[in-house]
Amino acid sequence: MPMMASSSFLSFFLTLISFFFLSSSCCTFTISNYCPHTIWPGTLAGAGTPQLSTTGFQLDSGQSVKLATVPGWSGRIWARTGCTFDASGIGKCQTGDCGGRLECDGNGSAPPTSLFEITLGKGDDKDFYDVSIVDGYNLPIVAVPRGVYGTCNATGCASDINIGCPKELQVVGGDEQQGGVIGCKSACEAFGLDQYCCSGEFANPTTCQPSFYSSIFKRACPKAYSYAFDDGTSIFTCKAYEYDIVFCPNGNGIKKSESPLTAPSIQKSNNRDVEQVVSSSNNLLSLPLPILLFVFILIFSVYLAAL
């Protein structure tokens, strides 16, 4: 009997360990709105990977939403602003619009839009991720990975580029924004020249160099992609079990609200923590999985010793 009990416990233990390893291979995106106004996040899966459970939704100030994904998922996440939709989800947004629908359903974002881009690794393969303002900018965004194995780099663009956007790149809003700048175009979109679009004879890293305009973006947000070949300082790797994607990390006047989509409300006191994460390139956000494994091994050892 003791031997049978031991075998049963060992089988249960190995199943439990496998469960935790399998769980750790999946990843969750926690999307949070620190802006003092409503945003409408959108998601788009890359070729060969499934769309997330939602491809577009409303997120009021102070709300956060968790979206589960699968190993190997590739895609991008962004936020739309100034949206109006009817009961059937048809409408438009001032920035980041994705085909005039609440659910983007495979449509990408209309520039200018700040983008979070990622390809998740399968198994032990690392994730590759970045924040891109190559297609222009509409909102501050930071991405904070919670690493499985150790140190992971936060990245993003916490600065409000709209404030200092050159006049020739500005997107100006309507009455709701009091005529303010709601987006900053890329030079490629504004002028359509090969030298700004890294196309034609400029379609390689040797001939396509930082421009006056991309340098403005880079100075404001050193860790974000500012032009097509800005790989060296802008793409990061990690093995993470969760990515916190925060819009307007320095936002003030957050209003708490609840909806069926909402995870626990964002606490305003966390703003400084996010700012510190953005300013540092060595932030350790570790998964408690090793601790759990240690506890299970300890319990199993005690159990064997008692037989």
Rank of each mutant, 00 (worst) to 15 (best):
P2A: 10
S6W: 15
L10A: 13
L10H: 07
T15G: 12
L16T: 06
F19L: 15
C26T: 15
T28L: 09
F29V: 10
T30M: 09
N33W: 00
N33L: 01
T38N: 08
P41Y: 04
G42K: 06
T43F: 04
L44D: 07
A45E: 04
T49Q: 04
G56W: 01
G56E: 00
L59I: 07
D60I: 09
G75M: 01
R76Y: 14
I77C: 09
I77S: 05
R80T: 05
C83D: 02
S88F: 12
I90M: 12
I90K: 15
D97H: 06
D97T: 09
C104H: 02
G108Q: 14
S109I: 11
L115A: 02
F116Q: 02
I133N: 05
V134W: 04
V134Q: 08
L139R: 01
V142F: 04
V144R: 06
G147E: 01
V148P: 03
G150D: 04
C152M: 04
A158G: 08
I163V: 14
G164Y: 07
Q170I: 04
V171C: 08
G174P: 04
E176T: 15
E176R: 15
I182W: 05
C184E: 00
C184D: 05
A187H: 01
E189D: 15
E189N: 15
E189A: 13
F191Q: 01
G192A: 02
D194R: 03
Y196R: 01
G200N: 14
N204A: 10
N204V: 09
C208K: 08
S211C: 06
K218D: 08
K218N: 10
A220R: 03
C221K: 03
K223P: 06
A224N: 06
Y225N: 09
S226A: 14
S226F: 02
I235T: 15
K239M: 07
Y243K: 04
G253I: 00
K256Q: 12
P260L: 02
L261W: 10
S265E: 08
Q267K: 10
N270V: 02
N270S: 03
R272P: 05
D273S: 10
V274M: 01
V277R: 07
S281L: 13
L284V: 13
P288R: 15
P290I: 11
L292M: 13
L292D: 12
L293C: 13
F294W: 08
V302E: 09
